[in-house]
Design a protein around this nucleic acid. Structure first.
Lengths: 134, 134
DNA sequence: ATAGTGCTTCGAGTTTACTCTAGGTCAAGG
DNA sequence: CCTTGACCTAGAGTAAACTCGAAGCACTAT
């Protein structure tokens, strides 16, 4: 089974522009073409696109993803680098999750204030300047 | 106790440029000035800056944060809107955390492959084209 | 008095990641 | 045959969020 760029774009919630842009930037150095030059994505390619989306959605820059892609096309010799990169990135993702949890707490405390204005009294000892509760 | 823009920048890991930019964009419509025109941050202001950072770090755009700031200076009449905005944003943050957890799983599975190449055999039935394991 | 430090504004420049336009090729259907 | 639709490339344009440079006050220390 193979897929057109349009199908892949729909599958991953990207635009075809974005997919071509990723290709142009070297994030997909292996997508095949049919006889008229159109990109043809295989199942394996879909897995790779999923990985690119994963890295992008977790905050890795296009440049870094390209570095990873380049290492992957280089073959086995870059396995250590790739592993190290993923391990470092993993740490960052864990930190992102922790930070989001912390920020969620602050948001929740603000929501609590809005839901129970008496809390504001206790927290701030009355209304702020310009009635700015949070 | 009060703080200069430099102290606040250090406290929050922002640059003074960024703080001034936020001020210019209307994210801090209340910071006082001393007699020579320099910004003076109070403890209350620090709490507000923390909230701005929280919203920014959880992906809210400057424009949206400004809307929130405007509502806050408007006074009590906008409490419902603010509460709704924070509740909606809270949902987004929860979704971000969920998505990060999913992406973390994928990253972990790739790391596992690097740590145990036999896994790759089972997962992919041998090496990919161009020895691209993941 | 003058040099240095830290603040000010305004506006221009930069980076990142798209996003779109123009003009073109190719294969199928009427 | 010709139109339609999906694809192609190259390159220009855009939005967001900074980031920086220039020029200038105000206070302090020598």
């Amino acid at each position: 089974m193979s897929y057109s760029i349009n199908e892949v774009a729909n599958k991953f919630g990207l635009s075809v522009h974005t997919l071509r842009y990723y290709d142009k930037e070297g994030l997909m150095p292996f997508i095949g073409r049919d006889k008229s030059g159109n990109r043809v994505f295989t199942e394996t390619d879909l897995n790779w696109v999923a990985m690119v989306c994963c890295l992008k959605d977790t905050g890795m820059s296009i440049k870094e993803i390209k570095k990873y892609a380049d290492w992957c096309t280089e073959g086995m010799q870059s396995i250590d680098e790739r592993k190290a990169m993923l391990a470092a990135h993993r740490k960052q993702v864990v930190k992102q999750i922790e930070d989001l949890h912390k920020n969620l707490e602050l948001i929740d405390s603000k929501i609590a204030v809005y839901e129970n204005p008496e809390l504001a009294q206790r927290l701030y000892g009355g209304l702020d300047k310009s009635a700015l509760i949070p």
